[in-house]
């Protein structure tokens, strides 16, 4: 049997009070992350991926409120005291952000920044911390790290900086690494290096990785399981092969169809019409219904729930059986 999950998110709700009203950025999100597993969270801009991550690690701004549960080690992190949360952060769950350019202190030496992170989690002396920093920099693939310890961040390229940021995140030997779009600001070639690094670290250290991305390819490159988010909710979840290979939710299907360079070289893509809704006032029922080509009159009032599709695969669409049938027929019709 599969081991019990290390992280269980249940009915997570996160909202931000804004001048325009309450933004329900995350609305009833549930998922599990197994030990040593790489879990992907994909979705378009503003669907609540970052808000989910920040809720898990307790880094939300003051005007945010959360509900639900984030269980780690049998402890509900949402109910944890700030003191307890500080102990979890870094040592158990660490986070890597999108922009490597602003994540490092520009006026502190690289070696000192990593060593500082080491000493934040371990009672070790200055020399030991520095030795550990060197080890971490080597682990994340900084060439000749002993010569780079005393450099300042501006001497590092974007990819190198992201490696340093990851080294800092690893300093506390966390059991879960949350990576929020860690490669979005980087080139394809550098992105490939960082993703390779994540795959390697996950395998070598037995660490769980939660990888947030808007790019399905990035998630496919690193993760075993994936959840697709739309307008604050998970619409489909399952093994990467199944979700991307045989998607069941119309949004996932639409997303894959709009990817250029995948579906052969057809002159025209098949985009999802319209635009994602405002989270101030999301559509009723199934939130995808204004854009869904399969919607019926029941969809705007359907009480959304995630329905099982197969082993460890579910989709939040009540019509998924019928849709799968329709597409099968259509496929037969065209070939």
């Amino acid at each position: 049997m599969t081991p019990p999950p290390i992280l269980r998110v249940r009915g997570l709700e996160t909202s931000f009070a804004t001048s325009g009203g309450l933004v329900r950025a995350v609305d009833g999100v549930s998922f599990d992350v197994g030990p040593g597993e790489a879990f992907g969270l994909v979705g378009e801009s503003g669907c609540g991926k970052s808000a989910t991550c920040r809720s898990i690690i307790g880094l939300l701004p003051g005007h945010a409120t959360t509900a639900g549960a984030v269980e780690f080690n049998g402890q509900n992190l949402l109910a944890a005291t700030p003191e307890a949360m500080r102990r979890v952060r870094g040592a158990e769950i660490a986070m890597v952000f999108q922009d490597p350019m602003t994540a490092l202190n520009p006026v502190a030496r690289i070696g000192d920044q990593v060593a500082e992170a080491v000493r934040a989690h371990q009672r070790v002396g200055h020399r030991a911390a520095r030795a550990r920093a060197l080890e971490l920099l080597r682990l994340v693939g900084i060439p000749a790290p002993e010569r780079r310890l005393d450099d300042y961040p501006h001497r590092f390229s974007g990819g190198m900086r992201q490696r340093v940021v990851i080294a800092i995140a690893l300093a506390g030997e966390p059991r879960i690494l949350l990576a929020d779009e860690p490669t979005t600001a980087l080139d394809v070639t550098i992105q490939d290096q960082i993703l390779t690094l994540l795959v390697r670290l996950q395998a070598e250290l037995g660490m769980s990785v939660v990888l947030v991305s808007h790019d399905l390819g990035v998630v496919a490159r690193v993760c075993q399981r994936v959840a697709v988010m739309y307008a604050g909710q998970i619409v489909e979840q399952g093994p990467v092969e199944t979700v991307l290979g045989a998607p069941r939710h119309p949004y996932t299907i639409g997303l894959l169809a709009s990817l250029p360079g995948i579906a052969g070289r057809a002159r025209y893509l098949r985009p999802i019409p319209g635009a994602p809704p405002s989270l101030l006032d999301p559509p009723s029922g199934c939130r995808f219904h204004p854009r869904c080509p399969f919607a019926t009159e029941r969809c705007p009032t359907w009480a959304v729930e995630r329905l099982p599709v197969g082993p460890d695969h579910d989709a939040a669409c009540w019509r998924q059986e019928a849709i799968a049938e329709e597409s099968r027929l259509a496929a037969v019709g065209t070939t």
Binding site: V188, T189, L195, V199, R200, V240, L259, I262
Partner: peptide, 17 residues
Amino acid sequence: AIPTLDRGRAARPTTAA
């Protein structure tokens, strides 16, 4: 280096392009 959806070919390669 392009991340592809094609998991069959070289799933999670551990060397960079």
